[in-house]
Write a protein that binds this DNA or RNA. Structure first.
Lengths: 150, 150
DNA sequence: GCATTTTAGTTTGATACCAAAGTAACTGTG
DNA sequence: CACAGTTACTTTGGTATCAAACTAAAATGC
């Protein structure tokens, strides 16, 4: 009797992956949350990712890209691309660091601050609504757990 | 004295968003996990998302796309695009459902099963390594919390 | 049975994301 | 002060993701 390739993998293997994979669970939640916050922020012409980036710029010293990328969990090349539309709209300015000409600092502009004033208010509402939908300890448990991955 | 636009938003506002936003925390972790699993699965030519999709096909009845999209937390249009490279490689087949000609079922092929055999083994190792890096109750806490968002 | 509505999926156009390779500036060593 | 190595970012090419508009089939209503 010849060896035959089973038509499928073992059933329990599949269930294990499906029910335990933290990567899948995170991607799925990330897609859902992205759509949700993208929708809330649409009136400002900002995506959730653009909002997070703009928030990160809101500090006295404009941070260099090299610090922002790890903060956002993204690769430098992704940040380079993400900056472009925001710079084009005048919401942030890219400034070479005089101390190190390789480094570029991202400074939020007054237009950016003005836009973010409204966006932050909307974020507050959207986030409160989200937390209200989750169980009592869930938001904190998620924040703690997700921070461990970072 | 004229009204002036402050140069920045209030500092605590920014800190609140930065430290509590579940959307940001999830996107950040999702990026990091995606890179990690993409790297582990690279020998099979699969991304983490392709792996998850292939796993979901591993059931006696090939599931219709309409069930897969919610399972993966993605929009139907994204699933349509995701199917193409896998179908091109012969890892899955798109079959119109005879009962409902609008619906398309995705069937994993023997080639797909063969590839996934190795990929699942690698996933097991990668996932065990990830869990080992996290605190004792963290993986379960994350699974529970992320499932609430789904 | 035919028109309307709903449902399943696709297409299009735009942004997001990454790896790999490239450029330019800094650093350290001899 | 060269020059080798490193660091900061960019470019390129490819996939991922979505919203909005579209197509086609099924279900509903009359």
């Amino acid at each position: 009797m010849p060896e035959t390739t089973p038509a499928l993998l073992p059933r329990d293997t599949v269930l294990t992956v499906r029910d335990t994979c933290l990567c899948l669970a995170t991607q799925r939640a990330a897609r859902r949350l992205a759509r949700r916050f993208d929708a809330a922020l649409r009136p400002f012409g900002l995506t959730n990712g653009q909002f997070s980036l703009m928030v990160a710029l809101n500090r006295p010293e404009p941070p260099p890209m090299g610090r922002l990328a790890p903060f956002l969990g993204m690769e430098p090349s992704t940040l380079t691309a993400a900056v472009k539309p925001l710079a084009r709209r005048g919401l942030l300015a890219v400034e070479p660091d005089p101390e190190d000409l390789r480094s570029r600092r991202l400074r939020i502009t007054p237009e950016g601050v003005a836009l973010m004033r409204g966006a932050v208010a909307v974020w507050r509402g959207a986030h409160a609504a989200l937390e209200a939908e989750l169980g009592a300890g869930t938001p904190d448990a998620l924040r703690r757990g997700l921070a461990e991955i970072g």
